[in-house]
Design a protein around this nucleic acid. Sequence first.
RNA 1: CGGGGUGUAGCGCAGAUGGCAGCGCACCGCGUUUGGGACGCGGGGGUCGGCGGUUCAAGUCCGCCCACCCCGACCA
Length: 478
Amino acid sequence: MAEKLPSRSENFADWYNQLVLKAELADYAPVRGCMVVRPYGWALWENIQAALDRRFKETGHVNAAFPLFIPMHFLEKEKEHVEGFSPELAVVTHGGGEKLEEPLVVRPTSETIIGYMYAKWIKSYRDLPVLINQWGNVVRWELRTKLFLRTLEFYWQEGHTAHATEEEAREETLRMLGVYADFAINEAAVPVIQGVKSESEKFAGAVQSTTIEAMMGDKRALQAGTSHFLGQNFAKAFDIQYLDRNNTLQYVWTTSWGLSTRFIGAIIMVHGDDQGLVLPPRLAPIQVVIVPIYRNESQKSEVMEAVRRVGGELTEAGIRVKVDDRDEVTPGFKFNDWEMRGVPLRIEIGPKDVEKGSVALARRDIPGREGKSFVPQAGIAQTVAEMLTTIQDALLARATAFRDANIHDPKDYAELQEVVKDGWAFSWWCGDAECEAKVKADTKATTRCIPLEGVEGEGKCIVCGKKATQKVYFARAY
RNA sequence: CGGGGUGUAGCGCAGAUGGCAGCGCACCGCGUUUGGGACGCGGGGGUCGGCGGUUCAAGUCCGCCCACCCCGACCA
């Protein structure tokens, strides 16, 4: 652990990279574009997994595991799918010292191999719906990589469902988007906008892609999770058919939805500050760190007795606590160290606290004196639990206010070009891909989504001035 | 793949005109410290990105290669 971070406001990209390394979330692997998720980062991911997995189970899904390798020709069965993914495939050509008959693709996503299996398993309307999720890793050979946000290999979950009717599949698509939004907002304190992707931004092979979009601390957008309505595209490509009640063969309707370790990047970029990471209490691997303070052995034994008692009460109450009893570093160092790692709440216990029966509480979301308070040891579990809730709520409120303050409604195209330099635009759009492409060429901003909570009425397209019935977010994105 | 840059200890760097490979941080040991990034003393650590060439002598000069980073076209 080490020195200060670059200033977040002055050099966001550098701040981000160093934070990831110094907070020990991840490190660069010896292969270009690959990362190692370190134990602290993985613990965060495990908490994300638990929060999502619980929601998947509650909505009737089960987990399974499909192979990493996919026969090359599977990808080629769905035209848009192969066009979308072929530039970024890792392909295995040899195995066991022999050249393979057919190359194997390392999965960039699993629609094809799961589609193949679904065709085997689904025979009757009684077999539907199939609601399966998989936790795993995928590989996409990206050109420009960045820790967590875009690496060659990443970890995620991908849900794949098959339904008897279009309506059911569309409902499922939106249900799971809602699950992501609920997770993002209520677990990660990351405010997101649910919406529909434009034709050019949608998943290769989908009929419709939906997304949760979040605003990062530098006002760029991040697609934090996606849910796709695949229509019958994969059903037809893989011949997934069932007999309906009338004994007629029908193609199923499928969906897929995914959320990846990229979300860790979102948490970092939404909540982090110049001191380092700031974790939402509900996902933080360590919610409270206790730092003992003493000058000599006799103070140490008194202090440690209080530290153990307080720590025990918190653990008892189900709070994730860490006692930092390292003797080789000073308390001041520990304060900075745990702030870098984003622990939501710090408790300091020193000789004065032993004397008064108190502890010092320091909130991570409010750095310095302002976030410090002194509370009695009696009833500490309750005090801390309430404080964690307060912090969780404060993070969401702050991020939401920041986002809303940086979404603009430009009056004309010239103003749109200005606002997307440092914020989002929410504008009428005729839906024409040419208008979308023009904005991208002029400003690097892309359409992020047409929000599900649509806007009433109609206006004029911000680009071409033609009639428009929908508003879309434009922003520079990760 | 185009444009730019960098490779010397784990990290950050220095090493005019070729001549014993160094500094800061980190790491190890001992002691003093400890309520916002402690200090002293001692110590370990290197195929100088790789290969070839010039030379009595190459981290330094020349050639080729490799890797990585930053900026542009694609992306959860």
